[in-house]
């Protein structure tokens, strides 16, 4: 694990049309880490993910991947640079079957998981290969949305609330999967509302509020900061 940040976000501002949503977001993700963005509804977590991917109308500030500036690039160029997003709404394609959904993202580099490994991690996807993508259960769709970005060779994965609305057993399965891909050298930026889940997978946490990062903790320190965290998240 090197100390230089793999992803370095500085002074990130973002807008949807006229609404100014992010007001100078700063954080780092180091190679091989799992880092979460925590925060209440509307704090700007999803917007931060989309901004990194180039999917908001306008953004300013700096986003560096391994030292290379991403803010001037189109989303496809950012994708080719090695960042992949699993969006909050999962974006499984209704017009594609499970296999087509899985194989849709092109390989951008070596080092992605091969199909047998993916099917070992997500056995349901193999059984349902010919089903229409959106006919899968919510949990299966989430698995598919994650699985399809593991194949491509992208090394920095942005997972936006992968556990949202899922049954506890599925949440545990996703937790195991995240620890597994961390073992395999992937780096993960994870958006979560459920910090109990986040604590089982993450190395560090950032807390967002009103379009800014307002605090950060190491996962080891989480217990000492429970009161603050309850306060931030209103739980």
């Amino acid at each position: 694990m090197s100390d230089a940040a793999m992803l370095e976000v500085r002074g990130l501002n973002a807008w949807y049309g006229e609404s100014h949503i992010l007001h100078g977001v700063d954080f780092d993700v180091r190679q091989g880490e799992v880092v979460t963005l925590l925060g209440r509804n509307g704090a700007g977590k999803t917007t931060t993910m989309k901004s990194i991917m180039g999917l908001v109308g306008r953004r300013a500030g700096s986003i560096k991947l391994n030292g290379a500036e991403m803010t001037g690039l189109r989303p496809d160029q950012i994708g080719r640079a090695g960042i992949a997003l699993c969006p909050e709404e999962r974006a499984i394609f209704a017009g594609l079957n499970v296999t087509e959904n899985l194989m849709l993202p092109p390989k951008i580099a070596e080092g992605g998981l091969d199909l047998p490994t993916i099917y070992t991690l997500f056995p349901n996807l193999k059984e349902r290969a010919a089903s229409q993508g959106t006919k899968l259960s919510g949990g299966e769709q989430q698995m598919l949305a994650i699985a399809r970005i593991l194949r491509t060779g992208a090394k920095l994965l942005l997972l936006d609330e992968p556990t949202e609305g899922l049954a506890p057993v599925i949440v545990q399965q996703i937790g195991r999967m995240i620890r597994e891909i961390k073992q395999r050298g992937f780096t993960v930026l994870l958006v979560e509302q459920n910090f109990r889940f986040a604590a089982t997978v993450a190395d560090r946490h950032y807390v967002m509020e009103h379009g800014k990062v307002i605090d950060q903790f190491r996962n080891d320190d989480l217990q000492n900061n429970m009161d603050k965290l309850h306060d931030y998240l209103g739980v």
Binding site: P75, D76, G79, A84, F93, N101, I149, T152
Partner: peptide, 18 residues
């Protein structure tokens, strides 16, 4: 398949590097 996907959700398809 890529075409069909891009008609549904061009932004996500583009983020995959297309």
């Amino acid at each position: 398949a890529t075409l069909r996907a891009a008609t549904e959700n061009p932004a996500i398809v583009q983020s995959f590097g297309i």
